[in-house]
Every structure is written in structure tokens, then in C-alpha cells.
Amino acid sequence: MRRRLIAFWFVLPAFLLYTVFAVYPLLSALANSFWRWQGTARAGFAGTDNFTGLFTTFPLDQQLWPAFWHTMAFFAGTMLMQNTVGLLIAVLLAELPVARRFLRTVFTVPYLVGGLVVGYLWSLLLSPVFGPVGAGLDAMGLGALARPWLGDPATALPTVILVNAWHHLGFPILLFGAALAGLPPEYGECARVDGATAWQRFRRVTLPLLLPSIGVISILTFLGSMNTFELVYALSGAQGNQPTGPGGATDVLGLLFYRIAFAEGGTNAIGQSSALAVLLFIATFVVAVTADRFIRSRS
């Protein structure tokens, strides 16, 4: 009993903090989404109107699905880059006899900088007028390849995805690096004795053992992508009133939420944005939990 009491007092602060700062805001968003709002005042019960409104009101109905697909592409592109380029660099670093820690730090530095800063820096680098990327291509005689990367609907989203992958590359490198260091060397050596080539050793021994790490990275990338905001916001020049990017080419769900909640100044902003937040939360939660279960069952 005494032990229980002590445990209770130890748990209490964390429980209170969690309730006040995590559970309460989530529940209040849920509650807000069922009301119609006039500014900051409730103006009557809305039922599911705020939810259906997202899918049926012009122009939201034309923005929601593109934003969703852009978010999915953002996730898929980033995840692919992290699990290929990130893994490759991590493997190469693990094999490197010298300067391993230094290079790992170098690759990780962008990850330590905020998305707004990274987005702003890249928007400067990629500026067709003043940016060094275009100038560099020109200098190499490849001026024909220079284009307004972020101003062309065809290249804007791929560019944003590449910048995002660059920004977060340090994370898979660190995680894969740790996982590689934790692999028992006997497996690889056995395979080597049996005459396996380096590729076969990687494909048949190392990669299967890295699957849990790939899963973790994919889930975290999914969470990050569903909530992505600041990088795209900064790359598009930090204005949140219309679908972001040329012709809305880089609009994502996080930005759609920002528009509804803050930028448009609609009187029902709280109700409608809460509805989108609830949907986002449910989708993210369900996918993350399912994927986590799946990965655990496989490993």
C-alpha cells in the first residue's frame, strides 16, 4: 500500500502535465469541431457540418484532395530518399576507417536547423534571379537546365521533397548507423567464409536485420509528413492565404489547416480547422499504430 502511494505521488506530476498539455487540448479540439463558431464565441451545435464542409464547400473541396495527395507524395518521396540514400551513406560511413564521426556530424547538421530556416535558405539558393544554383548551372554550361524550380508546377513538389529529404537525412544516417553498429559481426563473417560477395552479404544478412530500423524511420517520416508545414511554408515565400506553390502545386494538409485556422479569417475558423485537425489526428494515429503493430509482428 505504502509503495503504491509513493508510486502514485511519483506518477502524479507527469500525469497532470500530460493531461493538461496533451489530453485536454486534444479533447477541446474534438469538442470545438462539433460547434459552429462566430469568431471566438460558440454559435450553436454544428453536428458533423464542419467535417462534411471540408469535403463539400467550394473552394475547400477542390483543395483538400490535392493537399492530401501532395502530402502522400511528400511522405513517399522523403521515405524513399531516407531508406535508400540515407541507408547508403550510413553503410558507407560504417565501412569508413577514418573521419566517420566527423562526416556523420556533417550529414546531421541540417537536421539540427529548423525547417523555416532551411526553407528560407533553399528558397534563396534556388531563386532564379539571385540564386547560386542557377548561376552554378550557367557557369558549367548547363544553363539550359536552370529553371524556376519552385515556380514551375512540374518541378515545385519534387524540389520541396528533395529539400525535405536533404533536411532530414541526418536522422536515418544516425539511426541506421546505430543499428549497423549493433549488428553482431559473426553473421557477416559467416557469410563471408561461405563465400558471399559484399552485395550478397548486404542483401541477405544486413538488410533483413535493418528492417525494424526501416520501419521506425518510415513511421516517423509519415508522422512528420502528415504534420509538415514550416519547410513548405518557407519555400513558398511564407504566405498562407492561397494553396501554396505555383497553381497550388506544393499545397499540403498542414498548410491547408493553417489557412483555415489563421489566414482566411473566417468566422467559423475554429470549428472548421478543428474538424480538419481531428481528421488529421485520427488518420495519423490509425496509420502509425497499424504500421507499428505490423512491424513488431514481423520482427
Binding site: F58, N241, Q242, G247, E264, G266, T267, N268, A269
Partner: peptide, 21 residues
Amino acid sequence: YGTPLGSDLQAAGLQKMLLGQ
């Protein structure tokens, strides 16, 4: 005075128009 704002509709539309969309 209501959402969607006229200025937002026009801004998004004009961008698409100048892009040829």
C-alpha cells in the same frame, strides 16, 4: 466579409491563369 475571401479566390485564380492552367 465572408469565406472564401474574394481576394484569395482571385489571387489563386490569377496565378493559375498566368501559368496557363
